[in-house]
Design a protein around this nucleic acid. Structure first.
Lengths: 154, 154
DNA sequence: AACCGGTGATTCAAATTCGAACAACCCGTG
DNA sequence: CACGGGTTGTTCGAATTTGAATCACCGGTT
């Protein structure tokens, strides 16, 4: 691996743009959610996933997959959110080891409270900045990137 | 803000694709760098910036700007890297408060050792997955996203 | 029924992160 | 020259993340 194919200028622009945008957008969203609703970004993601799930509940492992956090990180966050009353744990009837995270009414309310500001920020920092063509390129290109990494990682 | 403009399907695909790719790519790079060279991603970034800087040195504040870390995070990382012999601190002659981080020969060697594997991974997970058109869309679109966030944040 | 590889979730210690507070200093102004 | 606002880098404590180790359990096999 002494002579790798370095990145040409086009590739470099795309790569550093992606890297910078990734860091900056994440930081901005974290800050906005914390200021606006007292939620961290991982916590918001958990609320969203639970709200979209059938019965408003998901197994811990399902929640950890495809999420930013590791398994232990999820355990921590769910514990915090349980203290805050946003979610509740329910043990799985068919598998004693299994644990469901269940969205509470308070959690649902918190999500509805936080969502508008969150969406507005997403528009402001990303969606409304891009042209429709760029949106499609992002969706197609980064969609494939994500798919490959999920495939490998699993 | 009771009736925000929600994301339509195209926007949603782009947004969640970006979010997922962002998290997955970062995680993968962190892991690769740590396994391959014993560096964290922030540390690698520091090496790259210093290597590109005139005299192989930069002020702490310059290094902190546009980097993933906060000021205090940078102090921490530079301290770690100084222990590892990759960088060295030098006080600024014209400003007693100022501190330069200087790349050492060992740091330079570490960067040359780590770079090929890093570039290969960047190609594998992102650059080689995208079409040239998608690369340009990323560079243009996300470049603008980064520019705006830098402008606001500063 | 006892065994066994694999799974689900938690616990633990260590590393890393951030923001706020801090101390020291620069510089332009009066 | 003394003053005051803004900078520079570090320190501090609290929160968060990770991976490894752990415990308990499932399901199929012997």
């Amino acid at each position: 691996m002494a002579e790798p194919r370095w990145l040409d200028e086009r590739e470099m622009r795309a790569w550093s743009g992606f890297l910078a945008a990734s860091a900056l957008v994440n930081r901005r969203l974290d800050q906005q959610l914390k200021d606006d609703a007292g939620l961290s970004h991982p916590q918001y993601e958990i609320l969203v996933r639970l709200a979209a799930a059938p019965g408003r509940e998901l197994r811990m492992t399902e929640l950890a997959n495809g999420l930013i956090n590791s398994k232990s990180g999820l355990t921590y966050q769910v514990t915090q959110m349980e203290k805050a009353g946003l979610v509740r744990r329910r043990s799985c009837p068919s598998d004693v080891r299994g644990v469901f995270a269940v969205l509470t009414d308070a959690g649902s309310a918190k999500l509805e409270e936080a969502a508008p500001g969150h969406v507005a920020t997403v528009r402001e920092v990303l969606v409304d900045v891009l042209t429709p063509a760029q949106l499609d390129a992002l969706a197609d290109g980064l969609g494939e990137v994500g798919r490959r990494l999920r495939g490998q990682g699993a």
